[in-house]
């Protein structure tokens, strides 16, 4: 679709803001609506828009399939790793307040929730991008 100048210019203008908005949703999820899922979906839709306009080849240059496969597992590992970290720090599984020294449970909760949402965001982004790429790749044979 890159021969349509309007589509090209507008998408070039919009895509950085979409990424920025996804990051905002990811890290502002504690204070307003948002969180890992929504950020991951927005990130994936920005990548999908890029793919629609510029084609799969250029999108795969930016987001290599190998990288996506690694990221899918990384997100789940971040989530599980946070839980195990709490276990090793002396708490229960996913008991975030064990992450910091006693007396400031709120900071531990904040840290743990942030890490977990980050893991969720990575997995959702990678999975949805991977699924989209799989459909598009199948379509071109």
């Amino acid at each position: 679709m890159k021969h349509h100048i309007i589509v090209r210019v507008i998408s070039k203008f919009l895509i950085p803001f979409m990424f920025l908005f996804a990051l905002y949703v990811q890290f502002h999820g504690d204070f307003g609506p948002g969180g890992g899922f929504q950020a991951g979906v927005i990130f994936a839709s920005a990548i999908a828009l890029y793919t629609l306009v510029w084609g799969l080849d250029r999108a795969e240059q930016a987001f290599k399939p190998r990288l996506i496969e690694i990221l899918i597992a990384t997100g789940v590992m971040i989530y599980g790793g946070t839980g195990l970290l709490c276990l090793f720090a002396g708490g229960h599984l996913l008991e975030y307040r064990a992450l910091v020294e006693p007396g400031h449970p709120q900071h531990g909760e904040h840290l743990g929730i942030g890490l977990v949402e980050f893991g969720v965001g990575i997995t959702v982004t990678a999975v949805l991008t991977g699924i989209f790429f799989a459909f598009v790749r199948r379509g071109r044979t």
Binding site: V41, V124, F135, R138
Partner: peptide, 20 residues
């Protein structure tokens, strides 16, 4: 429901892949 929506899109995409 937040959880259900995300699981829903995962299963939907799996179903669509099966359709293909």
């Amino acid at each position: 429901i937040l959880t259900a929506i995300v699981v829903g899109v995962a299963t939907t995409s799996l179903g669509l892949a099966l359709c293909v």
